[in-house]
Nucleic acid binder design. Structure first.
Lengths: 147, 147
DNA sequence: AAGGTAGTTGACGTTAACGTAAACGTCAAT
DNA sequence: ATTGACGTTTACGTTAACGTCAACTACCTT
């Protein structure tokens, strides 16, 4: 029996795999984000549940609230729904995409700031007299772009 | 007198410009993220305060907590500090950069998911009989990758 | 049978990031 | 001089996303 490719998982299995607590998984179920099967009282997570959890957690890392994630999951189920809702679904979806692209720009800017900062102070050297960091060229304190 | 390039701002000025409440600015001050000058009791924000606020808000959009933003701002002031702290500062800074790059990857994946979803349902057409959305080619319901 | 491990359901506690209301000061305009 | 727009501090309220018990069940294992 191969243990690596199970098709069902206990709550602890998923919790440890994704580095969250069991409480978190129960919480997501309370919020309607997950709906694992039951064997008696005990939750039994399928492969689909596992994928869905990974998706949820990625959404969380990206900064979405559980409510937003819930709405996005709802969008997917609207995809095969009535035609009248198609346009609304598409608009919301595209809005999300635009927001994410804006956020990506913010992240790139922040990365650029931090990298420039790293580059600046990485070449500095302690001053003989004061012990403070100065430029090895000019002997003067660095010009740091402080926000 | 040109109103566009002021060198001082009221709390309301900045609040409206950045679309936050005055309460938020006071909160940031309580947390030590801002330290505007005072004219009597009244806060007077400088151009530097304004830039700093923009930086803070970008950090917030990126998903940082106020505490994390505070730490990052502290990094910058450590930049011209003692040599002994330089290495620590650099490591923290690079860690931040790596985290941000990972987050950017997550965002890109999410964007890809959403765009694929958009592409899929955008070409669908309502079925004559059921009214449900189906492929114009096959007449069958679409294959949507549901997380 | 006793203990250990893993599961369950309440239900209250916690933290961050503000919201909100009270109670008050200060000018400029009506 | 009173209204109104803007500012202040103090302090309690709120929401999200869980943490943290308690009290219980079920199933092995020794």
């Amino acid at each position: 029996m191969n243990e690596d490719f199970k098709d069902t998982y206990s709550i602890k299995d998923l919790a440890t795999e994704f580095n969250v607590t069991a409480r978190t998984l129960r919480h997501y179920e309370e919020q309607g984000l997950l709906a694992p099967a039951r064997s008696g009282q005990t939750r039994v997570y399928s492969q689909a549940d596992r994928i869905r959890l990974a998706w949820i957690l990625r959404g969380r890392r990206v900064g979405f609230s559980l409510n937003e994630i819930s709405e996005m999951l709802a969008l997917y189920s609207l995809g095969d729904g009535r035609a009248t809702q198609r346009q609304v679904t598409l608009e919301k979806c595209r809005q999300r995409i635009d927001d994410l692209k804006a956020q990506r720009d913010d992240i790139n800017s922040t990365i650029a700031d931090l990298e420039e900062f790293c580059d600046t102070i990485e070449i500095l050297v302690p001053c003989q007299k004061t012990g403070k960091l100065v430029s090895p060229e000019t002997g003067k304190p660095p010009v740091i772009k402080t926000p």
